[in-house]
C-alpha cells in the first residue's frame, strides 16, 4: 500500500483550499502551524472531504481538530489508512 505523502497533502490543499500568497507551500512546511500557512479549520475539513473521496479514508473529526501541522495531518491519514486497510 502506498503511503500518503506530504506532497500529496499539499497538492490536495492547494486545489481545494487555495494558497496564501505570503506562503511558499513548496518550502519546508511540514512542521509549520496550519494557521501560519493560512489554513483554518474549514480548510482542514474541506481537505478531509477530498481525502475521503480520493483515498477512501475517513478521518475522525475529534482527531482532525487536534491536528496542527501538515506533518501531523499526514501521520493521521497514514494511521487511518493502515487501520482501515484502505488506500492505494
Amino acid at each position: 500500500m502506498d503511503a500518503f505523502t506530504l506532497a500529496e497533502l499539499i497538492r490536495i490543499m492547494r486545489e481545494c483550499a487555495g494558497e496564501d500568497d505570503q506562503v511558499d507551500l513548496d518550502g519546508d512546511v511540514a512542521e509549520v502551524d496550519f494557521a501560519e500557512l493560512g489554513y483554518d479549520s474549514l480548510a482542514l475539513l474541506e481537505t478531509a472531504g477530498r481525502l475521503a473521496r480520493e483515498w477512501g479514508v475517513s478521518l475522525p473529526e475529534e482527531e482532525l481538530t487536534q491536528v496542527r501541522t501538515p506533518a501531523g495531518y499526514v501521520a493521521l491519514v497514514n494511521r487511518e489508512l493502515a487501520q482501515s486497510g484502505a488506500g492505494g
Binding site: 481545494c16 487555495g18 500568497d21 493560512g38
Partner: peptide
C-alpha cells in the same frame, strides 16, 4: 484576491 479565498 488572495489565492486562499478563491476556492471558498
Amino acid at each position: 484576491l488572495p489565492g486562499r479565498l478563491v476556492p471558498q
